[in-house]
Every structure is written in structure tokens, then in C-alpha cells.
């Protein structure tokens, strides 16, 4: 551990956290390529570091969303059964796979993440239909007027299945998994995007904690590297939330989709 590595971890974590929050992600999709490609960390250590950083940002964000009552806590708790099982399976699997295989899998994930980011940006302005014939009712303020919009949750088995997969990917590759859960909750269960994002963020901490202990037990978590990256990402996410109120993220989404595509190719060919 050197001063330059500490500064690189804090700065890299800060940038990953800022862009993650600007784009509604945990930051893991930016942090892991940075740790592997720029700092040369082993992929297992990069994933373990990303997981603790994801816990920090999701916990801080969830605390705020709970106070604003945008989280559907009952839905989140129910889906956590699936994400925790998926994350435990993912964490165990990751520790028996080689670094090369994990790197290839992560590059495929980045490719998918880039496509999903663009898809989400293109659908951003679409008016969302609200369904009141489901279960687990919730309420979320309307983006334009601020008026409360009631909604209910439909097709829970479908979103439980996606949550298991998201938990598995989180445990396997060290990301939050919101990039899969948020569109699934919105498209399958008809949950408004703001409530889906808040509920997904609420779940991510528990999902990541489930696999974090497996990486910890295998000795992949370095106390100084983990601490520096987690602090960097945490303060970066606060900056990202502050910036998101001042700038439009549409252009950023396209830029980062292209960055993620190139990074995925770089990692795959590594």
C-alpha cells in the first residue's frame, strides 16, 4: 500500500460513485474495470471491493429514500428472499471460478448493462400506466406535479425470478444488480420507475451483504483497499445525487454506454 495507491482508490471510487449516482447505478460497473484495468488488482479482490462500496452507497441512498417514503418496503423484503439466495449462490460460485472466467463474464455483463442503459434512456419520457388491481400498494410523488400517485404490484412471481438472477449476478460479479431489477419491476410489475429504483436500492445492501461475507471469509477483502474505495464511492455518490438535480443525464447515458461497450471489449480481449 502506497500513498499513490490510496489517492488512486479514493479518486477512482469518487468518480465511479459520482457517475453511478448520476446514472442511477451503484457504481460497480465503473469501479471494477478501473480496479482491474487501471490499478491491476486481481478480479476477485476487485469484486470484493466493489461489493462493500455498493453496500455503502445503497445504505446511504436507502436511508434517504425511506425518509421520503418512496421505497415499497414490503415488496423489497419479499424480493430479498430471492436476491439473498441468488447472491449466496453467486458468491460461492465466484470463489470456485478462475479470474479469467470472471473477467469474461464481467465483460458480457458490461455489454448488457450498456444496452439496458440506452434502452432506459430512450423510454425515459414515456408516460407510465399505473395499475391499481395488484397487491402491496404503495405511493410515489409524480415527477412533474409532485402529487402522490398510488400504484400496486402485479405479477410477483416474474419479478421474483428476475430478482434471483440479479442477486446471483451481484454475488458473482460484485455489482448491485439494479440495472436488471429496476426495468423488471417497471415492465413486469407495473411499478413507477421512481419507486422501482428506490425499492431496488433498498434491497441492494442486503443482497451485497449476503455475498460480501463469502469474499471476506476467502481473504479477498483488503482492509485498506476496501476502506479507501468504499469511502471514495460513498462521497462520490453524494456528489452525483447533488449534480443530478442540476444537469440532464440523457447525454451522459449515451456517453457512458459507449464507454461501457469499449470497456467490455477491452476486458473480454484481456
Amino acid at each position: 500500500m502506497t500513498v499513490s495507491l490510496l489517492v488512486a482508490l479514493l479518486a477512482g471510487g469518487f468518480v465511479a460513485g459520482t457517475f453511478g449516482a448520476l446514472l442511477g447505478l451503484g457504481g460497480g460497473v465503473f469501479l471494477i474495470p478501473y480496479l482491474v484495468l487501471v490499478l491491476g488488482l486481481p478480479v476477485h479482490q476487485a469484486i470484493a471491493t466493489s461489493i462493500v462500496a455498493v453496500i455503502a452507497t445503497s445504505s446511504a441512498g436507502a436511508a434517504l429514500n425511506l425518509e421520503r417514503h418512496t421505497v415499497n418496503v414490503r415488496l423489497g423484503m419479499l424480493l430479498e428472499i430471492a436476491t439473498v439466495l441468488g447472491a449466496i449462490a453467486g458468491g460461492i460460485t465466484a470463489n470456485v471460478l478462475s479470474g479469467a472466467v470472471l473477467t469474461k463474464l464481467f465483460s458480457v455483463l458490461l455489454f448488457l448493462a450498456a444496452i439496458l442503459m440506452v434502452r432506459r434512456a430512450r423510454n425515459h419520457t414515456r408516460t407510465e400506466p399505473v395499475h391499481l388491481d395488484g397487491v402491496l400498494p404503495g405511493i410515489v410523488p409524480d415527477d412533474g406535479t409532485g402529487n402522490p400517485v398510488p400504484y400496486t404490484v402485479r405479477r410477483i412471481p416474474g419479478v421474483l425470478g428476475v430478482s434471483f438472477v440479479a442477486g446471483n449476478v451481484s454475488g458473482l460479479l460484485g455489482i448491485g444488480g439494479g440495472i436488471f431489477k429496476v426495468p423488471a419491476m417497471n415492465m413486469i410489475s407495473g411499478i413507477p420507475i421512481k419507486a422501482a429504483a428506490a425499492t431496488s436500492n433498498f434491497m441492494i445492501g442486503v443482497t451485497a451483504a449476503a455475498s460480501a461475507f463469502i469474499y471476506f471469509a476467502h481473504g479477498h477483502l483488503h482492509p485498506m483497499i476496501g476502506s479507501a474505495a468504499a469511502l471514495g464511492v460513498l462521497f462520490g455518490s453524494f456528489t452525483g445525487v447533488w449534480l443530478s438535480r442540476r444537469i440532464h443525464s440523457h447525454v451522459l447515458v449515451w456517453i457512458f454506454a459507449v464507454v461501457l461497450l469499449f470497456t467490455s471489449i477491452e476486458l473480454y480481449l484481456r
Binding site: A56, S59, A60, A62, A63, L64, L66, E67, H69, V71, V73, R74, L132, D133, P137, G138, I139, P148, P150, Y151, T152, G205, L234
Partner: peptide, 25 residues
Amino acid sequence: ANESPVIQPDNLVDHWASLVLRIGV
């Protein structure tokens, strides 16, 4: 299908969970 759902009010779980997360972080 056309009835408004019962909206869950401000509840204890939201407040306690938020407090625990803040203290932990």
C-alpha cells in the same frame, strides 16, 4: 380493479430501517 388501494401510511419500519442504515454507514 377500479377501487383505489389502501395506501400504507408513514410507518415504523421506514423510520427504524432508515435510522439503522444511517448509524451503520
